[in-house]
């Protein structure tokens, strides 16, 4: 009897259906509230920066793959994510070539030179951002006061991002800013990092979809808060509270979108928690005693470099102990 031809493969013979592109789609969806918040506070110029940034990341990826003769890997969506994140970390006042240069560095030096997605040691968006921040500091640090489209009045307590104000003027400079302004994002800053509520929405979506686990964000945020709480207990005149350090600046944005980037963050539970704590500690040390205003980006880049070590904190292997009961 004629039998049908059969396929042979190693098990398993099923797949969960979660692919790289679906993960990246989830990441991008999670960023949409922050994108909307950027448009709400900074208008169409913010969207333009994001579009330039995303498009130049995709173009760089396309050209690079053509140049090295690899199949074009735009389908997995990782270039879109890198470009979008980089755009969200910029002010809407930057000239058009800033995101273009940033994405070129992010994609080529941050990612592709190391072998692409999952193999780069440092967060690719932050590599691009760090290049810009060091080379074009004055161009980057041009933060307008947000102008909400409707409902809200412009926040009037700050003229610089909160972390900058704290660095220059100490606790007195930020003590009057209501928490409401931070939560709604009604403060000067970058396109995507100011609106706490939008970032939390995106983070909750990532956790709900199980794209990331809670370990890195929670240990990161908790460390920042505890560090701020303890220092402000010691000297409330000099140090801002833990809540300020969590809500102001990049802390939340980084905890959900920068720190857990695949390939640059540890994969074991112990490693993730150690990594989150390390990010939190370094963030606070740089913010309080360092020369940079915002401690988050360099804290993450530094912690990226110890990720391979943190991955040595392994789970206990079942059946390793040869105990005879």
């Amino acid at each position: 009897m004629k039998r049908p031809q059969l396929y042979v493969s190693a098990p398993p013979h099923l797949h969960s259906g979660v692919r790289v592109n679906s993960i990246m789609r989830d990441f991008i969806v999670a960023l949409l509230p922050a994108v909307l918040a950027g448009w709400f506070y900074f208008g169409w110029s913010a969207l333009l920066i994001l579009i330039i940034s995303t498009a130049s990341a995709m173009a760089t990826k396309l050209l690079w793959d053509k140049l090295v003769g690899r199949p074009v890997g735009l389908k997995d969506g990782s270039a879109i994510f890198t470009g979008l994140v980089l755009g969200l970390m910029l002010s809407n006042q930057v000239p058009w070539w800033i995101p273009v240069v940033g994405c070129l560095v992010a994609i080529v030096a941050g990612k592709e030179l190391f072998g692409g997605l999952g193999n780069h040691p440092f967060n690719s968006s932050l590599v691009g951002w760090a290049f810009l921040a060091i080379s074009y500091k004055d161009i980057l640090e041009n933060y307008p006061t947000p102008e909400p489209k409707f409902l809200l009045e412009a926040g009037e307590y700050l003229v610089d991002p909160a972390i900058y104000a704290f660095k220059d003027g100490g606790v007195d400079a930020i003590i009057d800013v209501p928490w409401k302004d931070f939560i709604l994002g009604n403060v000067p800053g970058e396109i995507g990092t100011i609106c706490v509520i939008a970032i939390l929405l995106g983070g909750a979506y990532l956790l709900y979809r199980r794209v990331i686990t809670w370990h890195i964000p929670v240990s990161f945020i908790a460390t920042v808060w505890i560090f701020g709480y303890v220092t402000s207990l010691i000297d409330p005149e000099t140090y801002a509270s833990g809540t300020f350090h969590v809500l102001a600046g990049w802390t939340l944005f980084a905890a959900f979108f920068l720190a857990p980037e695949f390939g640059t963050a540890p994969v074991t539970v112990g490693g993730k928690i150690g990594y989150g704590i390390g990010c939190g500690l370094l963030t606070m040390i740089i913010r309080i005693w360092g020369t940079y205003n915002e401690g988050v980006p360099f804290a993450i880049l530094l912690m990226n470099s110890v990720t391979p070590l943190l991955d040595k904190i392994r789970p206990r292997v079942v059946g390793r102990v040869k105990e005879i009961a």
Binding site: V18, V20, I23, G115, G116, L117, G118, N119, F262, G263, A265, P266, V267, T268
Partner: peptide
Amino acid sequence: NPCISCGY
């Protein structure tokens, strides 16, 4: 494909 180190 190469591993993307997602840790899943």
